[in-house]
């Protein structure tokens, strides 16, 4: 854990969290507790997490949870419905149990294994009701990797605002929300350790989310971790895609970033307009694509050589 002048940086399980705000350290520590609570409940790597209890009870029974705990489940299901399954949190059977991304047992599965596992991916069998969460078929698994960091970033920025922050920055594993100050937010190059662009924000709330194939993969970037639900395998439209949206809707943006990564460039503009987001995409050949920046509330964007 390291202290900035008016901020806090800590690693909570696998997620690096940076909080900067004009608030006391005590409040920043309290905010950090939110992250720890979240990880305890929703981490796929924690055996006794709420998420894993839902997975273990798939096809058996629902798991009772509080209204607060149901919030992420509900949002994930909403996104799945709105995207007609392009984003689907029931992808866990593929990501965790077949590819096993992030585990020592991770492997490139056979087509037969993928075909079999794909049958258990269907958001329509994911039920969230007033008291409980339930997966209808045995073997189904939830994975919030495509939405969780955005959710926690949104929670943190809301918490800091409610505590009286006039300016704040939250960085939850690369999912970034800011307000109140002109922050410089860099977009990392997928090819080097450097940055390809820096966005200077206005003081209005704004959120950033990036998906990329260059950090988590098995053996090579050919087998990166952002799966296409339809094929249960990987697309290679982009090396990296960054979404920027006015406001603090990190949950939505994180999910849409996952969807955008599996959207061919001809359909990217429609996706951007549908969700009112700006997109910077870097194709595998190194071409830069920009969509829907006209109405984005930023002060400047500076580009560097790739």
């Amino acid at each position: 854990m390291a202290f900035f002048e008016n901020g806090l940086r800590a690693k909570v399980m696998s997620t690096e969290i940076i909080l900067e705000a004009d608030l006391s350290k005590k409040i920043l520590f309290e905010a950090l507790d939110l992250v720890k609570e979240f990880e305890a409940k929703f981490s796929a790597y924690k055996e006794d997490s709420l998420l894993n209890r839902v997975n273990i009870n798939a096809g058996i029974s629902g798991v009772i949870c509080t209204q607060d705990e149901r919030e992420l489940f509900s949002k994930a299901l909403e996104m799945a419905k709105a995207s007609d399954g392009v984003f689907d949190p029931t992808i866990g059977i593929l990501s965790q149990a077949t590819y096993c991304f992030g585990k020592s047992t991770q492997k490139i599965p056979t087509k037969k294994e993928l075909q079999k596992a794909k049958e258990l991916v269907n958001f329509k069998d994911f039920i969230v009701n007033k008291e409980s969460v339930y997966l209808k078929r045995k073997g189904m698994r939830l994975d919030f990797g495509g939405i969780g960091k955005g959710f926690i970033a949104e929670k943190l920025i809301t918490y800091l605002r409610n505590k009286g922050a006039k300016k704040a920055l939250v960085n939850a594993g690369g999912e970034i929300c800011t307000f109140g100050k002109n922050y410089n937010i860099a977009i990392k190059s997928p090819y080097t350790d450097e940055n390809i662009a820096v966005v200077k924000t206005s003081k209005a709330p704004i959120t950033f989310s990036t998906s990329g194939d260059y950090e988590r993969f098995i053996s090579s970037k050919e087998n990166h971790h952002i799966l296409d639900i339809k094929t249960a395998s990987q697309n290679h439209y982009y090396s990296s895609i960054t979404l920027i949206k006015d406001g603090k809707d990190g949950t939505l943006l994180d999910a849409v970033a996952t969807m955008a990564f599996n959207t061919p460039k001809e359909k990217l503009r429609a996706l951007a307009k549908r969700y009112n987001i700006a997109i910077i995409a870097i194709e595998e050949e190194g071409n830069l694509l920009f969509e829907n920046f006209k109405s984005l509330d930023i002060k400047a964007i500076e580009l560097y050589a790739l």
């Binding site: 690096e16 940076i18 900067e20 920055l169 960085n171 594993g173 690369g174 999912e175 970034i176 800011t178 922050y183 410089n184 937010i185 860099a186 977009i187 990392k188 997928p190 350790d193 940055n195 820096v198 200077k200 950033f208 989310s209 990036t210 998906s211 990329g212 194939d213 260059y214 950090e215 988590r216 990296s240 960054t242 500076e302």
Partner: peptide, 13 residues
């Protein structure tokens, strides 16, 4: 200077 306040990427440094 454009000091960077945060970096968005697929994974953090």
């Amino acid at each position: 200077g454009g000091h960077v306040d945060a970096v968005t990427g697929a994974s953090l440094n």
